[in-house]
Nucleic acid binder design. Structure first.
Lengths: 121, 121
DNA sequence: CCGCATCCCTTTGGATACTG
DNA sequence: CAGTATCCAAAGGGATGCGG
């Protein structure tokens, strides 16, 4: 098992070592993916459809947006709802309780950044 | 200016757009570098020398450790002190107030992870 | 309208070797 | 002991184009 990981990549191996020694890094790797928290935040503010998100972030590409939405879904940070009786069909996302709890901490991070980076230094 | 950025890399351009639109991402890019928060945390727990950190994280390479220490220094999250009267000379790091404030939030992140990932799912 | 597959480029981290 | 320089491999994101 260990040798199998090693064969794949030392990088991957280090990730496992790290994950085992400290769960924080797992969380950081989850939330730090680019655009991810912006997307989560936007969804919580009712920018909750693929096309709306595309308009909100013109610089993000489709497949990254799709990938992030998929990650957020599998991590249980957002829910996906398909609106019936629409053609072409419509998809609406919403932040879960878990996702909203995360946003609270993200907001604290933002405050930390504002406080420590702008005023003091 | 914008065209100059564009020429360099669309990726870089997007980073600028993102940075302008939301400071949170800047912070995430700062704290999410691999090993970084572990290093900061370890330093706050008096694992505060290059060699000690190497022992604490056998899987990390020298130059990444050095790079992270440099980043933490320039960001004002840690301080560097050279111990006099030692040969070979010795370097001791310590977490700044700013760094410790960050660790508080990182700890909340950890708690969020434990609470939301383990018990519910 | 909502995405995914493919290809390519940029970024990042690791290995080895070297300096003060 | 405390790093730095160079080179290289892996991962992540973007552009284009296609499918449901």
């Amino acid at each position: 098992m260990a040798s199998e990981i090693k064969e794949n990549s030392t990088n991957t191996f280090n990730l496992r070592v790290l994950a085992a020694s400290c769960e924080v890094n797992e969380i950081l790797e989850v939330i730090a993916k680019r655009w991810k928290m912006q997307i989560l935040f936007s969804i919580s503010k009712d920018v909750n459809q693929f096309s709306l998100l595309k308009k909100a972030f013109p610089a993000i590409s489709d497949q990254v947006l799709g990938k992030r939405l998929g990650e957020l879904l599998t991590e249980g940070l957002i829910d996906k709802t398909i609106v019936e009786n629409t053609c072409p069909f419509q998809v609406v996302y919403s932040a879960t309780e878990k996702g909203q709890a995360l946003l609270v901490i993200i907001h604290e991070l933002h405050l930390w950044g504002k406080k420590k980076w702008d005023t003091i230094s």
